[in-house]
Design a protein around this nucleic acid. Sequence first.
DNA 1: GTGAAAGCGCTAACAA
DNA 2: TTGTTAGCGCTTTCAC
Lengths: 333, 333
Amino acid sequence: MAKPSVTSADVARLARVSQSAVSRTFTRGASVSEDTRSKVMVAAKQLGYRPNALARSLISGRSGIIGIAVAYLDNQFYPVVIERLSRALQVEGYHTLLFMTDPGDQDKVVQEILQYQVEGVVMASAHLSSSMAQECADHGIPVVLFNRYVSSTPASSVTSDNIAGGRAVGRFLAQGGHERIAFIAGFELASTSRDREAGFYQGLAEEGMVCHARAVGAYTSMGATDAARELFSRKDKPDAVFVANDHMAFAVMDVLRNDLGLRIPQDVSVVGYDDVPQAAWGAYDLTTVEQPADAMIAATKDILLEQIAAGAVSRRASVLHGELIIRGSARTG
Amino acid sequence: MAKPSVTSADVARLARVSQSAVSRTFTRGASVSEDTRSKVMVAAKQLGYRPNALARSLISGRSGIIGIAVAYLDNQFYPVVIERLSRALQVEGYHTLLFMTDPGDQDKVVQEILQYQVEGVVMASAHLSSSMAQECADHGIPVVLFNRYVSSTPASSVTSDNIAGGRAVGRFLAQGGHERIAFIAGFELASTSRDREAGFYQGLAEEGMVCHARAVGAYTSMGATDAARELFSRKDKPDAVFVANDHMAFAVMDVLRNDLGLRIPQDVSVVGYDDVPQAAWGAYDLTTVEQPADAMIAATKDILLEQIAAGAVSRRASVLHGELIIRGSARTG
DNA sequence: GTGAAAGCGCTAACAA
DNA sequence: TTGTTAGCGCTTTCAC
């Protein structure tokens, strides 16, 4: 049966000090004499005392919890982000309450998050209604949209420069001497996909080219597979394809090589986006645009901590530069 | 500036009922008249009331939080587990507080977890000292070691049958007509690696064979790369290799094909373990042993919920069967 | 079914 | 520096 947990009062009794002395001992930055502190520590150790973070939060108004909502972890980019963001926040004394969302009930999830009195919210690959964002802002809870943005909300955003990235790919493929350059979009409502596409067209245009064909992969492996089949079933097959993220690019490469018997990059060049760890793996060796995960995480952390400290929310948009990483999946001219 | 959040007292005042009536309205299973309930709901909606989960936990003793400690998310198996486990627990009204651990400070992490009054703990790819496990048990907090076990603690464990899986691989490779079958171990102290290896030797022995060579990959890509180079630099190269998990197997395949110019499976067969999503990707098409993630997650959830409900901890060990998934990376005879 | 009252374990004034 | 005193927002007896 559960042992009733030991409270600060128990420790105080044993140490023959007041309960507040115990509290102070466990509150960093409070003034306690060395003598009292050691008496408390001895008693605490003896009883196995551990402060109750929930009770502390209730009175202090600081829960030390950051809520992270994420829709899926298939795309390796998100696990990487969650791992590093969690670690970065842990260093600052925060912990992450993880919420998996389904497309649709996003607001409901945020409602739940807020019940836990989180001090900040990160939405990664997840949507948030404007009214919900406004509600968080009203309560002084900073919200960071990670890897997407919505201009009409008070929520901050951290993204890489998807337009510049797309543009770099457009120019790179055009300069690589390709003649029929195609695009496979992600989820069309996502700002990432839209921006990468817009930048891509711009890059092509700068080299006097236009996009040869286009299909939609919806950021899923299956969607990408279908999109690739569709694009490459035409008689004027593309000789290069820019895929809106790495996760889809892998599926595309598999179809091209295994189903359609095409060689990469001899017959067709493939470029992705994200630079997830697998992009560097030998079997894909994917040319791609890096999303600067570490910088994006640092920016997210900074926005959160700053606005938590200020007790006020303001909309910030951090747009970080990512390099084109040239590997072997695309011809260079 | 932060709006002071609205409390049940505010709602009560507006609805002209007592504060306890509001509490009852938001506590499922409490008896409130339909009339009162609707008055409360109207007022709550109007004020944007949201119960404070922390205050509720403090008095009720049920936080609704399950702590998950995990060491790294590189191996795709763990993101998959975290995603599905989170979803499964969310359905039951629980949320997951995520802790990234470093090898070493594991107990410290658990201490932090416990401060949040979690109702259960899952340790995935993370260690836990016996004394810490005992302490959790004393407090009635169930602990599940996910994908590993330690016999000498009160912590429960959920694993797949790694011995049977390893054995299946041993027999499969022996029957496939291979003559020099090697093994690349994971982290040698991990029960998964040890069991897979033991089962593997047993399977080989049943077919009258022994392991030709062995190296250690430590469950990292880099370790696996080195291990593969080491095994295949000898003059009597293996013609088959069982790698202790898929994550390493991908790195091994990359080395074999790209650095050493070997064909898979013609020159060398490769078998992994886990059946992570990428194993099915065309570029690897990896023969592997499935870890039955859904069953393992269901077992984890059951153990947690059951022991939480009982208010008592007992050690349970769930060992689940996983199939050998035959794909194209290994010859079949 | 409802309200009044008593805390859950802790922090944060305040006075000493 | 220390102890005393109020609560934080909620659930849960307990009478009514």
